[in-house]
């Protein structure tokens, strides 16, 4: 975490509040605390905020508020939040996942990369509880962390042009779920029937930053049954 939080302009109508440059729970909590405070207070001129691992991007309406003015208000808010811990939501989402085979074609690669059995990779991945650090990339993609060092694996050298919706992937120490079919470079180890993005829901994403996600290994039959039900309900 930086000693002093960095405030900087991003283009002509956004302002970045950067707390650090690494993935850390403490930094991420600060980001979400400031985001929540802005949302609660409804700061004049703020259009929307994008919280990430380590920073908050604040989009503002330059007609409503000036850059310097907004920096002052945010600094003041940041100071008021010092020593204040965001109440942690204890929302836990279980994600039934079919690992390996056609659903997770990089499981073998990860196992080989670390000299493990595929079964051990599955166990290491599904044993942990992961925190949702942020949502981004494509609509509803949750960035979860962190996976055990034993299974942390670099992205694929050549990204896939099409990764099916529901795919569970690993990139370095991050894990995540593709909410919609999209191109992607993460190592795919499995698939869930759960749909992480739905425009009919409010909010449109299944999980929110701060939520806990736990993967539960399931068998093919169970997965296919649940998938049919989920698709019918969409």
């Amino acid at each position: 975490m930086y000693q002093t939080t960095r405030y900087m302009p991003v283009g002509d109508k956004a302002l970045l509040v950067e707390f650090g440059n690494i993935i850390s729970l403490d930094i991420n909590r600060k980001v979400h605390a400031l985001n929540l405070a802005i949302l609660q207070l409804g700061l004049k001129g703020v259009v929307e905020c994008v919280p990430t691992y380590r920073s908050l991007l604040v989009y503002y309406d330059p007609v409503e508020v000036g850059y310097e003015q907004l920096v002052l208000r945010l600094r003041e808010l940041e100071n008021r939040l010092k020593g204040f811990r965001v109440p942690i939501q204890k929302r836990m989402i279980e994600v039934p996942t079919i690992y390996g085979g056609e659903y997770g074609s990089d499981l073998g690669h990860i196992a080989k990369h670390h000299n493990l059995d595929p079964e051990e990779v599955i166990q290491l991945h599904s044993d942990r509880e992961y925190i949702v650090y942020m949502i981004g990339f494509v609509a509803g993609f949750p960035y979860l962390g962190e996976v055990a060092d034993e299974i942390a694996t670099p992205r694929r050298k050549t990204p896939r042009l099409q990764v099916p919706a529901g795919s569970v992937g690993i990139a370095e120490k991050q894990t995540g779920i593709y909410p919609i079919e999209s191109p992607g470079g993460w190592q795919i180890i499995g698939q869930t029937h759960l749909r992480f993005f739905n425009t009919q829901r409010n909010p449109p994403t299944l999980v929110q930053p701060g939520d806990i996600v736990k993967f539960k290994p399931i068998e093919v039959e169970e997965f296919e049954n649940m998938k049919v039900k989920e698709d019918e309900s969409m």
Binding site: V47, V50, I135, G136, F137, A139, P179, P204
Partner: peptide
């Protein structure tokens, strides 16, 4: 579409 970038929506 404003207000949904925090959900990954462009």
């Amino acid at each position: 579409r404003y207000g949904y970038q925090s959900y990954g929506v462009p």
